[in-house]
Simulated scan of single mutants.
Amino acid sequence: MDDADRDPVELGVELLAHLEHEELSVAEAMDRIETVTTNPGLQREILDTAAMRGVIDREEGLVRPRTRGTYVSFEGDVVVREGDFSCERCGASISTGHFVQFDGGELGPFGSTCIRKVLGRE
């Protein structure tokens, strides 16, 4: 599935469903959502859709995932590829790209540090 085929709203909702933290500020959640889209309208739609579907609770500036224990596994859900990439989070040129595999599509590439930040491991 290439970038044109992936639905950014579905991908963003899946990303929020797999958060490892009990809660994040809306700003921290937006930092994660920006890896899917930088379009402010789509970012808001992702948050609204996730809340409407019961994936997250959103109140008082905090986002709390309702599905616990559905974290992304580095061994099973992250594919590493060699190539000439730009990190989707920081824009750095990278030769090893980490891609997260979701039902709604693939998210990435990310460098080794940014993949950990996107997934909440740092």
Rank of each mutant, 00 (worst) to 15 (best):
V26G: 03
V26R: 11
A27V: 09
A27F: 07
A27H: 07
A27E: 15
E28Y: 00
A29F: 09
A29V: 09
A29K: 11
M30Q: 13
M30R: 12
D31T: 13
R32D: 02
R32N: 03
R32H: 01
I33K: 11
I33L: 12
E34A: 14
E34I: 07
E34W: 06
T35I: 02
T35A: 10
T35D: 09
T35P: 03
V36D: 08
V36F: 08
V36S: 08
T37F: 00
T37G: 01
T38F: 10
T38L: 13
T38S: 14
T38N: 14
N39V: 15
N39A: 14
P40K: 02
G41L: 10
G41T: 08
G41C: 05
G41N: 13
Q43V: 03
Q43R: 14
Q43K: 09
Q43S: 06
R44C: 01
E45R: 15
E45M: 15
I46C: 12
I46L: 11
I46K: 09
L47A: 12
L47W: 10
L47M: 15
D48W: 00
D48T: 06
D48F: 04
D48G: 00
T49C: 07
A50M: 11
A50Y: 00
A51S: 14
A51K: 14
M52P: 01
R53D: 13
R53C: 06
G54A: 02
V55G: 02
V55A: 01
I56C: 00
I56L: 04
D57L: 06
R58E: 13
E59W: 10
E59I: 00
E59D: 11
E60F: 10
E60Y: 12
E60W: 04
G61S: 06
L62A: 11
V63H: 07
V63I: 15
V63M: 10
V63W: 07
V63A: 08
R64W: 07
R64C: 06
P65V: 07
P65T: 03
P65D: 08
P65H: 06
T67L: 12
T67P: 00
T67K: 08
R68T: 04
R68L: 10
G69F: 00
G69R: 01
T70G: 05
T70K: 07
Y71E: 09
S73I: 00
F74I: 13
E75C: 00
E75L: 13
E75A: 12
G76F: 09
G76I: 01
G76T: 02
D77V: 04
D77C: 02
D77N: 14
D77A: 03
V79I: 14
V79R: 15
